[in-house]
Design a protein around this nucleic acid. Sequence first.
DNA 1: GCATTGTCTTGAGAATCGTTCATGCTAATG
DNA 2: CATTAGCATGAACGATTCTCAAGACAATGC
Lengths: 304, 304
Amino acid sequence: MLELRHLRTLIALRDAGSLVEAAERVHLTQSALSHQLKDLEERLGSPLFERKTRPVTFTRAGQRLVELAEQVLPQVRMAERDLARLAGNEQGRLHMAIECHSCFQWLMPTMDHFRDHWPEVEVDIPGGHHFEPLDALPREQLDLVITADPQPLPGVHYEPLFRYQGLLAVSRHHPLAGQPFVSPASLAEETLITYPVEHARLDVFTQFLDPAGVTPREVRTAELTIMMMQLVASGRGVCALPNWALTEYLERDYVKAVALGEHGVWSTLFAAIREETRETPWMVDFLRTARETSFAVLEGIKPA
Amino acid sequence: MLELRHLRTLIALRDAGSLVEAAERVHLTQSALSHQLKDLEERLGSPLFERKTRPVTFTRAGQRLVELAEQVLPQVRMAERDLARLAGNEQGRLHMAIECHSCFQWLMPTMDHFRDHWPEVEVDIPGGHHFEPLDALPREQLDLVITADPQPLPGVHYEPLFRYQGLLAVSRHHPLAGQPFVSPASLAEETLITYPVEHARLDVFTQFLDPAGVTPREVRTAELTIMMMQLVASGRGVCALPNWALTEYLERDYVKAVALGEHGVWSTLFAAIREETRETPWMVDFLRTARETSFAVLEGIKPA
DNA sequence: GCATTGTCTTGAGAATCGTTCATGCTAATG
DNA sequence: CATTAGCATGAACGATTCTCAAGACAATGC
């Protein structure tokens, strides 16, 4: 008997293009999906997709099911949202802070979407703080902090949102531009541009340069991504940024990107929340919306 | 995680009004449903329906889910139909005969519905046979026979459709009219009206009178249900018919009905088909449509 | 030409989940 | 106050559905 599980799998498969990544998205093993889809195909009596192509291509039957899934799953999600609201019809507050400078890109659509569905929850990003955002969490001055480096704090829970890769942006004429990846040593003579935050909060250092004992020739800071890009494009330095923060500049061929090391530097972005708020319907829904929006808006990220 | 199974259960529950009967409809036990619904309610954090009323009443959350189910399940069924057609795009023939005289009531809507979805399958009820319908099945002169008494024949499979209760229709002024049920003996002095078919094919005899060794004073036949009703209403006899064949006359208070014996006489209606045609997509779909239509159109029947 | 990598398949075992069965509880009915 | 019908519950079972480990296959690189 057809179940929603199958439809969710098919959507993941279409979005991902391969069983391996689809499995990640639905939080199952690749093998599980293989079995699941094989079962389904046997029961239906016809194959659903062509496995030998990349991305996979759906047969007519597969297309029909994907179509069904696209009809049905949004309806299911809407119902679930309504139910969550019916279950806990409590007032809520969701004040948040962002430690990650380039998060507005997906956070804004998330907030818009969320506001539509939870009018009774007050969503805001209060400005002008003088304190550490994470410390404001247990003090109930904030309810959610987006951060890439979780620090153990009593009563604070870190909910992984997605994983992203740190890339090195270099000018199009830079000698490193053609390489598949760079070694830490090759940054020893470069000017590295970073956001003006502590050294310890920059993955380039903690995960890449520090372990190799390398220090760039010079480090300078810039507040905004666009400023960094201008500096990089004009050859006045290189800078490390999340892959998704770079996509628009890469598409316009403004700068080039190379991986940090052979395997790349991967980080996880977290939503830090108070333990008590972890199970509230609106928090559950916000996190889900956040994840969905990120995957829809950002390219090259992976499930946590 | 919400699954279609849950939605199917809820629809069954709404249609049935009680867990016990809902369980029958989805071919599960009452306990299974109790567990399933309890789980669901726990995960959603709110009850879905009030169990202490008859029929059960849904909470707001329950209503919302029923609404979802009504949106989604028809879409799923349509998709399944399309898939079945995509899987086996073979031509088919579906010629049938009805042994059960009052089956047109649900068979006609079933055929209409089926024709819309399977234009390539030729559906017909050929008339003017001189042979036994069941014998025509293996000879491929017919493809499906609706019957209430399955006889073992090589290559013939009997697919149960639904169970119904045989009731005794009596005039409104008949002494038996007030009783909850009648004993076989009380028919000894009655005129029994039947369809003009063999004695052995009438449940009143095989399941009720014969075992008790009772013979009615007189047996006369009538071709059509409406004629029988006229005879019964005017006090010229009593007749045994399926409950659903009587509902329209009962509603108009034209005749009264009483059960045959303390526990009633229950029969099962079957679709007799050839083994080879049993798995073909259109046969599977026809049987499903037949069952769905029967339950929608007829009252007082139960799943086989 | 042969290792390497990434992807999908397969089969067996394991875990999980749902179902069954037996029983107990509650409310309505006579 | 017995009786019946409907629902809940818990233990044991059973069947899906997953994970794990191994293998096939194709594309890619040395």
